[in-house]
């Protein structure tokens, strides 16, 4: 073990972690707001609304993230003339933009499926009660279904946040300098393979369990009214697949 090389590389690795966290946060927020309408559409009885979402979710959940990244990053080159004409080539030329776009589309698909589960788990009686009070459509969703569905979806969503955070490491393959990317560059220069990779791994480990801790706390706060029926949060963490 060469401790000096670890100490020397920590600032660079932390900078990489900055990009990792940035990519995670932006994709999470964008994916979250895309997934709410998509989840509602997915459950629509109108086939014209539900089937495109079904296809989108199936594609992004059924193929590896790496294929999706390559499809957008390298694949966009095949449509260069069209993209140039529309003035979009500037974006697709950038690895950062392509990585972000892929991560957003990917997490939105997984989150759509999670929200669908949440919406379906809303007790029927609550929806009927709201209808009986005269609520319909948008108000019903905004006031009754979505708040309840989001709370029900929280445990599954916390897993998705962790998976997304870890998946961002793939952007290093298309040359972005996230935590994994920085680690790979330092290793290529110094050949201190396990020192650097294990340091980077520990950083991922700390943030991963930090995320889980935050969600556990939020879940605990939100479930005050069902406390005795709620799962022990420590047990819930162990059950995480």
């Amino acid at each position: 073990m060469d401790w000096q090389i670890i100490v020397d590389s920590i600032p660079a690795l932390l900078e990489g972690m900055g990009l990792t966290v940035q990519l995670t946060l932006i994709s999470l927020v964008a994916g979250f707001f895309l997934a709410i309408p998509l989840g509602v559409m997915r459950l629509s009885s109108n086939v014209l609304l539900s089937s495109p979402v079904l296809g989108y979710v199936f594609f992004f959940r059924g193929t590896p993230l790496l294929v999706q990244i390559f499809l957008i990053y390298y694949g966009s080159g095949q449509f260069r003339p069209v993209l140039q004409e529309w003035g979009l080539w500037e974006f697709f030329r950038e690895a950062y933009f392509c990585a972000l776009l892929t991560l957003i589309l990917n997490t939105a698909a997984y989150t759509t499926e999670i929200f669908r589960g949440g919406i379906q788990a809303v007790p029927h009686g609550e929806v009927e009660a709201a209808r009986a009070c005269g609520m319909s459509g948008f108000t019903l969703y905004r006031r009754i279904i979505l708040p309840k569905a989001l709370r029900l979806a929280l445990p599954a969503y916390s897993n998705e946040v962790v998976f997304l955070f870890q998946s961002t490491s793939l952007v290093s393959i298309i040359t972005l300098m996230d935590l994994t990317g920085v680690a790979r560059v330092i290793v290529a220069r110094t050949f201190d393979v396990y020192e650097i990779y294990i340091t980077a791994g520990l950083m991922y480990l700390v943030v991963t369990y930090g995320i889980l801790w935050v969600f556990r706390t939020v879940e605990f706060r939100l479930s005050g009214h069902l406390r005795d029926r709620a799962l022990d949060p420590v047990e819930a963490l162990k059950l995480h697949p």
Partner: peptide
């Protein structure tokens, strides 16, 4: 705990490049 806390790609790099070096 360790495996689920670290991205697969990084674990792959650790095992593939790290083990022979070690």
């Amino acid at each position: 705990t360790v495996i689920r806390g670290i991205p697969e790609l990084l674990l792959l790099l650790i095992i593939f490049y790290g083990t022979p070096t070690l």
